[in-house]
């Protein structure tokens, strides 16, 4: 397996960030692994990290007393998990559970926030990338709200 320093520059999230910024970001990173069903984080806990998934699968979940646990989204190798580290009050809004044995790079959110404050250019670049992740997830969530494959989304006139 490649080291963090080797892996991160090739990741689309960090592409074009520049050597100095990569060095700062890499200084806040560490490899972590999770067994199947182990939680990366739980709703309500301080959001002081985010993750780049390297292998395995993570389920973003919410638990409701009546509905039970609902999987809202999954993240696979290459995906980013977590943006609450960048948004006050810095608390996780959902659970993240490893569906299978999972490896990830974790980033110290406080460390990164401090470095972003010190270096606004890097802060802008990193925030821009997080916004792209948030935008992709928001669009996907909105489309899924349409329930396209449910009865309401079935086209009666369709050649199906």
């Amino acid at each position: 397996m490649r080291t963090i320093e080797q892996y991160l520059p090739d990741h689309p999230f960090f592409a074009g960030l520049g050597a100095d910024a990569m060095s700062l970001v890499g200084g806040c990173a560490a490899n972590v692994s999770f067994a199947a069903d182990e939680f990366l984080f739980r709703e309500g806990e301080p959001a002081d990290r985010f993750f780049v998934i390297r292998r395995g699968r993570v389920a973003i979940e919410v638990h409701a007393p009546a509905a039970g646990t609902v999987v809202l989204d999954t993240a696979d190798a290459g995906d980013i998990v977590g943006w609450s580290w960048l948004v006050p009050p810095y608390r996780w809004l959902f659970d993240a559970r490893a569906v299978e044995a999972t490896g990830a790079v974790t980033f110290d959110g406080r460390c990164l926030r401090d470095k972003c404050e010190e270096d606004p250019r890097m802060g802008y670049e990193l925030t821009r990338r997080v916004i792209q992740v948030m935008s992709d997830r928001l669009v996907a969530s909105r489309v899924r709200l349409l329930d396209l494959y449910g009865a309401a989304g079935a086209g009666h006139a369709a050649p199906r």
Partner: peptide
Amino acid sequence: PPSWAGRVG
């Protein structure tokens, strides 16, 4: 459902 080990999205 939580028992589903595949992708959601």
